Amino acid sequence: MGEFEAIRPYADAEVPGILSRLCADQAFLDSLTRFRFPRLAGPLGWLLKPVIAHRLRRVCAGIRTVAQLQDKVEPYVDRTVEHATDGIGYSGLERLRRERPYLFLANHRDIVMDPAFVNYALYHAGLPTPRIAIGDNLLQKPFVSDLMRLNKSFIVHRSLSGRREKLAAFQQLSAYINHSIRQDRESIWIAQAEGRAKDGDDRTDSAILKMFHMSRKDEPFAQVIGELGLVPVAISYEYDPCDLAKARELEIRARTGGYTKAPGEDDASIALGITGYKGRVHIHFAEEVGEGVDDAKQLAAEVDRRILGNYRLFPVHYLAYAQWDGRDPALDVPAVDTLFPAADVERARAELRKRLDACTPEQRPYLVLQYANPVRNQYRVKAGLPL
């Protein structure tokens, strides 16, 4: 594993030492204190931090493996799901085999919760959880890197600027993904494109698909993809906790041609994505893709069809589509009240109105866009129209 030392997750033998380091990491303890006691962390942080550290050491005592750590963390994840959602559903799990590693390729709406919900579904189905691809732009603090690598995350280098460095990083990433699935027999989760789909338009980047094949260029593309067990995953949120921030960014980009993140903006998005209200959530594991896809362009189109066609649409999506200026006249999209109970529609109407009222007039079309695009995409798939 030497060639993957800089990007791989931590192994079981490293877990106790990393946990001890985290228990003494002042930046990590500061963050925990602010999260647990947001009002008291400032004036009483000096008093609360030792208490947090003591509690953390007790919780971590006896944890020797990654699996034990995930078992310990799972109740906290369950509580987060219960408090921030109206329930999570999943479908397609019956097609997955415990002994078969997969390459889970998912749409991307939330930095942390996308892979967390996939893990949640697999864990509760008694299936192995995957190794998770995470961009190095999110690992600006050492304790964050430690936490993510403890939870089976591996690092994707996105902050490189030189063409040669980027190519070498892609080559290493390709080799690592293939090694994980073929030698280690460990599944992988990775987003279908770099960065979240802030406008709700989920599309697969063919460069990601080419990367999977990069370390095995002498072998046929379809054969490599088939051996990796590529499973498209559609992650659907009824409400996006970060939709207002995304609408603001989209409006600024449209008006100025660019957008510069403020310091700590990613951290704020992560926190809001974890704790913010999501309504209902659904995860669909589509059928494995492999045969009949001879190049990345064909594969991207097939993945898009399976993700967009299986995206769970909620009343808010149809309500947004009905008021969207970009409605497609070629599509026969039914009225929301013919699909859902009246009470569900009224709740969604009130929630959408509340979110639109929180936007400036200039930003409102971009919030509508986020919820309308999945409707357009799914009905184009159903009609057999190009995306």
Rank of each mutant, 00 (worst) to 15 (best):
G326H: 12
D110E: 15
E287W: 06
G87L: 10
V316L: 05
D243Q: 06
D25P: 03
F35I: 10
Q370G: 09
E249M: 14
A254W: 02
A121M: 06
K198C: 07
R347F: 08
L228H: 03
L331F: 12
Q172L: 14
R364C: 01
L96C: 08
P361G: 08
R57L: 06
D357E: 15
A222F: 04
I208C: 02
K152M: 09
L367D: 02
V77L: 15
V368D: 01
L339T: 00
V112E: 02
P115E: 01
D344Q: 14
V15C: 07
A296M: 08
I188N: 01
L230P: 03
A116C: 12
L32I: 05
R55M: 13
H108C: 13
K198E: 01
V66I: 15
D294E: 14
G17N: 08
E291S: 14
D86C: 10
I111K: 01
V81P: 00
L47N: 02
R306D: 04
S180Q: 15
P263M: 14
L250S: 15
P341K: 11
Y102Q: 03
R64K: 14
R248Y: 11
M211A: 03
G229I: 04
S180V: 05
A296I: 10
V156D: 01
P43D: 10
E291P: 04
E194V: 02
G195Q: 06
D71P: 05
E99L: 09
T360K: 12
F143W: 15
R255N: 13
K354E: 11
V333M: 01
N377K: 02
F37Q: 06
L44D: 02
A322T: 05
H213K: 06
V368I: 15
P38S: 11
Y311A: 05
A301I: 07
R347C: 09
A169E: 06
N119W: 07
Q183F: 10
D295P: 08
A320V: 04
G92N: 10
T80N: 08
V233R: 03
Y239F: 15
R164K: 14
R253Q: 15
G62D: 09
L313W: 07
E265Y: 06
L319V: 11
R34K: 11
G326D: 12
L339Q: 11
Q68I: 08
A53Y: 08
G89N: 05
G126R: 13
A53F: 05
H157P: 02
L40T: 00
N151L: 11
Q298R: 12
L331D: 05
R376W: 01
C359R: 04
P361V: 05
R347G: 02
I132E: 02
L56H: 06
A296L: 11
E14Q: 14
H124Q: 13
S91G: 14
G92E: 05
A268P: 00
D240V: 01
A358P: 12
L139G: 08
H282A: 13
H317F: 03
A41I: 08
E238F: 01
D184Y: 03
P341V: 12
P50D: 10
F285E: 00
Q378C: 09
P232D: 03
L40R: 11
N119H: 06
M113K: 01
G87I: 13
D201K: 04
P43T: 11
F340I: 00
A342M: 07
R100F: 00
